[in-house]
């Protein structure tokens, strides 16, 4: 029983990170009907930027002791800012001019992913960097189940971010425009909404969530390297699809589902089969429900 509870906590931790990244895929897809294949690498960039931000903050602070929580929040904000800037420039240069040509823009997205990976490789070199946690680790024991501060922070911060996102999407004008575009792309521009602004905003939010995901992931698995975004990105993408891409709650649910599936698969099968099983699950879900769990049935108008 405690074993299962313990695994459940692990699953929630992993699922939270997947959900954060999956949201980015899903939101962009909702607005643009476009899979941003570079998003996994944006997540990787987020992890690196938070590493450098933390180093920078510590160096600026010098001898003065600042609370770790402040470093944590500070580096997260800096990473979000940097990642958003990079994402927005990519959107401006590589996606926007090609937006009308669906296939070409997907190719550039794949290309931008490769570009980010290798640009990072050029800058930081082929070494794996170990990420020094910004959280002082204490392990709590609750009815035999151990929860670490890291796990609590990861789960708490992800949920907080998702709540903020829900607020933006449901309560602000821009957020509602975002949802409106996902719902009907033709009608919204007619209603005086500047679609370009909404797209920019969507990419910015998506990259902020990915940056946060990068920072949190680096706390759970403290080795960062330029190719780390590929696998995590694809899996987050699967989560988005399983939940129903384009639907925000779908991405969250999908992230947690994948977290559970992976932890369960890792517990039952040899760990090297873990990825294989995740992908097989994806295939099965898509075959059973081609538009994901929350996805609206896409009835083509004839």
């Amino acid at each position: 029983m405690t074993y299962i509870l313990q695994q459940l906590i692990n699953a929630v931790q992993l699922g939270s990170i997947y959900a954060l990244i999956a949201l980015g895929y899903s939101m962009v897809y909702g607005v643009l009907r476009f899979i941003n294949f570079a998003h996994g690498d944006i997540f990787m960039v987020g992890a690196f930027l938070s590493y450098f931000a933390a180093v920078l903050i510590k160096r600026l602070a010098g001898a003065t002791a600042i609370p770790t929580a402040l470093i944590f929040v500070g580096s997260m904000l800096l990473a979000m800012l940097g990642t958003a800037l990079i994402t927005l420039s990519i959107e401006r240069i590589a996606y926007r001019p090609l937006r009308r040509y669906r296939l070409s823009v997907v190719i550039t997205a794949l290309g931008m992913g490769v570009f980010l990976e290798h640009m990072t490789l050029v800058i930081v070199g082929p070494w794996r960097i170990s990420f020094h946690p910004l959280i002082t680790e204490t392990v709590y024991k609750v009815v035999g189940v151990s929860i670490s501060t890291t796990q609590l922070v990861i789960i708490f911060v992800s949920i907080l971010l998702m709540l903020i996102l829900e607020f933006i999407v449901r309560q602000t004008k821009q957020g509602m425009a975002m949802r409106a575009i996902s719902y009907d792309r033709e009608a919204v521009p007619l209603m005086g909404v500047n679609v370009d602004h909404i797209i920019t905003l969507t990419f910015a939010i998506a990259s902020c969530l990915a940056a946060a995901g990068g920072l949190l992931y680096a706390h759970a698995y403290p080795i960062i390297e330029p190719y780390m975004g590929i696998m995590v990105g694809w899996k987050a993408f699967i989560s988005a699809v399983v939940g129903g891409i384009g639907v925000i709650r779908g991405a969250m649910l999908g992230g947690y589902i994948l977290g559970f599936v992976e932890i369960a698969a890792g517990a039952i099968f040899p760990s090297r089969m873990r990825d294989l099983i995740s992908f097989v699950v994806l295939m099965i879900v898509l075959l059973a429900k081609p538009t994901g769990i929350f996805g609206l049935p896409l009835r083509q108008k004839v």
Partner: peptide
């Protein structure tokens, strides 16, 4: 469309 792209991707991984 995009969903099929995901299937091909998954196939590659599998």
């Amino acid at each position: 469309g995009d969903y099929l792209a995901i299937i091909t991707l998954a196939t590659n991984f599998i």
